[in-house]
């Protein structure tokens, strides 16, 4: 198992290098460049001069090599163009905020979504199931940022219970986390329901019932573990999504997290900051997906077996 973890970590290296190349290329094709951002409204010659000084007139491949060297050998994402602060330091400072946000989001999603999904699957086509299905369908279709703003409207402006935005005590976190996790709860409920429905008719569940286990034991010991794999995959995906994808919600509530940082950087056309932010977020996203894969191997020996024989999970 440990060897497997190391191999997966090693396989992440080319992926992250690939992400860096891809992000650099996308930014390369973006109209406008760093020199124009720095120079502001300076005359043309000055922009050209600056471009030459910054090495932006060199060919694509040379600049890419330079960037890769800086990121992977010197571990330096450079300085933000607009604020002149170190990008790595900025992101390290902001990351915990986004992390808290995503961790609470995913915890609520899992602990609300799985029971809800199991309940729906066990009462298929009854009122409870219809309610749970309708609820999850509704929240899968609700744009998170709109929900966030509606929560602000209701709880902050109309009822005055919670502060509309900003940072501070627990009361500041309630709405952002709620807005962020509704989508997750809905997705996990749907996934749990459908994979439970597949499992619940299997022979081994019938077997467990027929040997006289209580219904709770049948579900917790036999049905749920077998239904868990796709649920873990979806939860991992969701956690990763919340990590980087809560960006509009972070913006709405002015949470100084990584999403807000990226949105601001995009607004200022601060290309180096955007690159750094996207690459670091992707790194964490990959780590989360790896953790989800390991979680699957942990709950299901079949998956573990597949890992030790197959060269690579496809």
């Amino acid at each position: 198992m440990i060897r497997y973890v190391f191999r997966r970590l090693a396989l992440m290296i080319p992926i992250i290098i690939g992400v860096t190349v891809l992000v650099f290329t996308i930014i390369w094709f973006t109209p406008g460049d760093a020199a124009e951002v720095l120079a502001g409204n300076a005359p043309r010659e000055q922009v050209e001069e600056l471009r030459r000084l910054m090495g932006l007139d060199r060919p694509y491949i040379v600049q890419l090599g330079d960037y890769l060297y800086n990121v992977f050998i010197r571990h330096d994402f450079g300085k933000a163009l607009v604020n002149k602060t170190s990008i790595s330091a900025d992101i390290v400072m902001r990351f915990p905020k986004s992390l808290i946000f995503a961790v609470f989001g995913i915890l609520i999603s899992v602990f609300a979504g799985i029971p809800l999904g199991v309940y729906a699957a066990l009462h298929q086509n009854k009122t409870g199931d219809s309610l749970a299905t309708a609820f999850s369908l509704l929240f899968v279709s609700t744009p998170g940022f709109w929900l966030a703003l509606m929560l602000v409207l209701l709880f902050a402006y109309r009822l005055g219970w919670l502060p509309p935005y900003g940072m501070g005590g627990v009361e500041y976190w309630i709405m952002p986390v709620l807005a962020n996790c509704f989508h997750g709860v809905a997705i996990i409920t749907r996934q749990t329901r459908s994979s439970m429905l597949e499992v619940i008719r299997s022979d081994f569940v019938v077997m467990a019932r027929s040997k006289g286990l209580s219904e709770g034991e049948v579900i917790v010991r036999h049905a749920l573990p077998n239904a868990l794999i796709p649920i873990i995959a979806v939860a991992g995906m969701n956690f990763g999504g919340m990590l980087g994808g809560g960006l509009i919600i972070e913006k709405v509530f002015s949470i100084p997290g990584i999403g807000n940082y990226l949105v601001t950087a995009v607004g200022q056309r601060d290309f180096t900051a955007v690159m750094g932010g996207v690459i670091i977020t992707s790194l964490f996203f990959s780590l989360v997906m790896l953790a989800a894969d390991l979680g699957m191997a942990f709950v299901d020996p079949r998956v573990k077996e597949q890992y030790s024989t197959a060269r690579r999970r496809k």
Binding site: I27, G241, G244, F285
Partner: peptide
């Protein structure tokens, strides 16, 4: 092709959308 897709899918979807939207204008 699969390695390229692996790389693309390692970027959270919202961020990838955002980066492309910036690039395309």
């Amino acid at each position: 092709i699969m390695r390229c897709i692996d790389v693309i899918q390692s970027i959270p979807g919202v961020l990838f959308n955002m980066a492309l939207a910036v690039a395309f204008g």
